[in-house]
Design a protein around this nucleic acid. Structure first.
Lengths: 185, 185
DNA sequence: TTCTTTTTTTGACATAGATCAAAAAATGTG
DNA sequence: CACATTTTTTGATCTATGTCAAAAAAAGAA
């Protein structure tokens, strides 16, 4: 729990009551390697904070898995589209390693709205995610395969270190074979 | 002004006081075709609502203009990264046609926070933009040049109709020549 | 209208990265 | 351990799209 509180306090200060309430309303979850956290077609009504492990977001296109992103320790994740609009998810969330996460449901997170700190935190987080997504998609769209790989290595070395080749190449929008050749140098 | 109010009221109901305040705090701006609304390097401290005309967002990479997106009537636009973090913009905003827009500064928009409707509106808008950006970047990343063009035509026919070839092709991440050939059929 | 500038089209050619297939290496399992 | 499964590497093509250059068409200016 401290991990999550530290994470939030990088953005806003939390008083004791807010922390108690957060603890009340959140839950800890354990997933095994390869286990699905969210399946396509289901409504996603939680946001998770990753204590340990690694989680992959992907979808299926023409029968092939397209990996969107991979999250590691001390990051939050959800299927935003499904969560925010309460519609069935087009994405899967899968633990790539044994994973421990803290979850909070939308219902419970709405109870936190009475603490202005949480509202500021939620907005700041959303804005940051948006800006980052923007920066990264621009960077990736402009580079060749090698440049994309090097960029990902710069902004997300954990992914490069721990994820498998096929997942990394999919994030970059290139084939496994091409990535393997890039790594040879 | 009515145009903007209708736009907001698709999301939240505004009472008379909120409308008066919004009118007080916003301003109308006129731009000529090709005029820059925001230059790279400048801080962007406004959000605009497009009454008429067309606005292109682009940045320079390796000396070449990369068009990110083009907005048309009844849409809002800004350089989000610069606006939200109050840092110099990496992007330009340019009127592609004679353009009329309503602007509100960050300072003034903060005064609207006392109306909860505006807070809900702002959050909803941000969330929608995020979800849309997500959907579109996925769709574009997975298709070939022709598929990308057809997808853009589906989600933003105004851009296809009114923007020039080079700008459209740049949004799609393909060359002008390739787009010209796709159009021939 | 005529002239200039900008934008779009067309053609010839080059190439990054895809595809397909199979070998090699790594990992997991009883 | 030995065996099965999964993941990564390597090799031989193939192809969609890029690049460069020049012509044609459209738009703007005088």
């Amino acid at each position: 729990m401290n991990q999550l509180i530290n994470y939030i306090e990088q953005i806003v200060r939390l008083d004791d009551e807010a922390i108690r309430e957060l603890e009340q309303l959140s839950e800890i979850e354990y997933y095994e390697k390869n286990q699905l956290i969210l399946e396509q077609g289901r409504r996603c009504n939680k946001i998770w904070f990753l204590k340990s492990g690694m989680v992959r977001k992907y979808y299926i296109h023409d029968g092939k898995e397209i990996t969107v992103w991979i999250n590691t320790e001390n990051q939050t994740f959800t299927s935003l589209q499904s969560y925010s609009q309460n519609i069935p998810s087009t994405e899967y969330l899968q633990a790539c390693e044994d994973t421990v996460a803290i979850s909070i449901t939308r219902q419970n997170s709405e109870k936190l709205i009475r603490f202005p700190q949480f509202v500021i935190f939620a907005n700041t987080l959303m804005e940051r995610e948006f800006v980052n997504a923007d920066i990264h998609s621009k960077a990736l769209s402009v580079k060749d395969a090698k440049g994309k790989y090097e960029y990902l290595q710069m902004i997300a070395p954990e992914i490069i270190k721990r994820a498998k080749l096929g997942h990394i190449s999919s994030i970059l929008g290139i084939t496994q074979e091409t990535l393997s050749r890039i790594r040879k140098g």
